[in-house]
C-alpha cells in the first residue's frame, strides 16, 4: 500500500478582517476563525482523488500547532483522508521549524509522496516544501497544476505553473509536490464524511518527543495593515470620466 503524507496548516479565515495585536508584530488571535490553508485543502483533495481513483493508498494528514488545530485535521479527515497526526505546540513555527518537524514525521513511516500547499496564506513564505525536499534529499515539483502518479508508484508526472506557461516534468518517487490554485477544486466535506471522520484515528505527538529543536530563524519585527483606500469620486459625465482616465489615472 502506498502512503501519501499531506501537511495541513491552520490559518485565519481569509474572509475575516484581521487586526494587529498591540505588540505590533502579530495579528490578534482571540476572535479569529481558523480554516485549513486553502492550498493545503487542494493538497488533501488531490491525495483523496488519487486514492479514489482506485489505487491502494493511505492518506495521512499532519498538522503542527496548538491543541485546537485538531479541527482542521478533522476537516481533512471528513474530506476523505484516512488518519491524522497532530503535533501539538504553542511555539512560534516558521518555515524552517516546520520543515524540520515534517521531516521527522516523514521519517517515522514509509511514504511514497508528500503533497503540500505551495504556501500558506498567512505568512506567504513559499519555502516549506522546498526546504523539506532539500532536507530529505528528495525531488521536488512545485506549483503543480496537474499530477499523475505512475501505476507502480515509482514516478510522477507533474505539470507546473511557471512564468508565462506550463512545464511538465517527471520526478522519481518519493517526492515532494506543492500545489497551485488550479490543481483541483476541493470538495465540501459531506455530512456522512464528517460523521465518519469522528471515528478515524488521530495520533497526538508531543513536539518534544520528535527531538527537533524549534528556534525560529525568522523573527517578525512589525506588521502594518494595507493603506486605507481613499474614497472614490462620482463624475458628472462620460466626457469627465474619459478626461480623468486620460489625464489623472493616465490609463488610456
Amino acid at each position: 500500500m502506498a502512503k501519501i503524507l499531506v501537511p495541513v496548516k491552520r490559518v485565519p479565515d481569509y474572509e475575516m478582517k484581521v487586526k494587529i495585536a498591540p505588540e505590533g508584530n502579530a495579528i490578534k488571535t482571540d476572535s479569529i476563525k481558523w480554516i485549513v490553508n486553502p492550498f493545503d485543502e487542494i493538497a488533501v483533495e488531490e491525495a483523496v482523488r488519487i486514492k479514489e481513483a482506485g489505487s491502494d493508498v493511505e492518506v495521512v494528514v499532519v498538522s503542527i500547532g496548538p491543541e485546537g488545530t485538531s479541527e482542521q485535521l478533522r476537516t481533512a479527515l471528513a474530506m476523505g483522508a484516512d488518519r491524522a497526526i497532530q503535533v501539538i505546540t504553542d511555539a512560534e513555527i516558521d518555515s524552517d521549524c516546520a520543515h524540520r518537524i515534517l521531516a521527522a514525521i516523514y521519517q517515522q513511516d514509509d511514504y511514497q509522496l508528500v503533497i503540500m500547499g505551495k504556501q500558506s496564506i498567512d505568512s506567504d513564505a513559499n519555502q516549506t516544501g522546498q526546504l523539506l525536499a532539500a532536507k530529505l534529499g528528495l525531488p521536488q515539483a512545485t506549483f503543480a497544476s496537474k499530477l499523475e502518479v505512475s501505476g507502480d508508484w515509482t514516478s510522477a508526472k507533474v505539470t507546473r505553473e511557471v512564468d508565462g506557461g506550463l512545464e511538465t516534468i517527471s520526478v522519481t518517487l518519493p517526492a515532494i509536490v506543492t500545489t497551485d490554485l488550479r490543481l483541483n477544486e476541493p470538495r465540501y466535506p459531506s455530512l456522512p464524511g464528517i460523521v465518519k471522520a469522528k471515528k478515524k484515528p488521530m495520533d497526538v505527538v508531543e513536539l518534544s518527543s520528535l527531538g527537533v529543536e524549534v528556534s525560529p530563524k525568522v523573527r517578525v519585527l512589525a506588521m502594518e495593515p494595507p493603506a486605507a483606500r481613499s474614497a472614490g469620486i462620482k463624475v458628472e459625465s462620460v466626457a469627465a470620466l474619459v478626461d480623468k482616465l486620460k489625464n489623472e489615472a493616465k490609463v488610456i
Binding site: 479541527e71 476537516t75 471528513a78 464528517i194 460523521v195 471522520a197 469522528k198
Partner: peptide, 8 residues
C-alpha cells in the same frame, strides 16, 4: 463535529 457540519 457540529462546528464542522455547520461550516460545511
Amino acid at each position: 463535529e457540529q462546528r464542522l457540519i455547520q461550516e460545511s
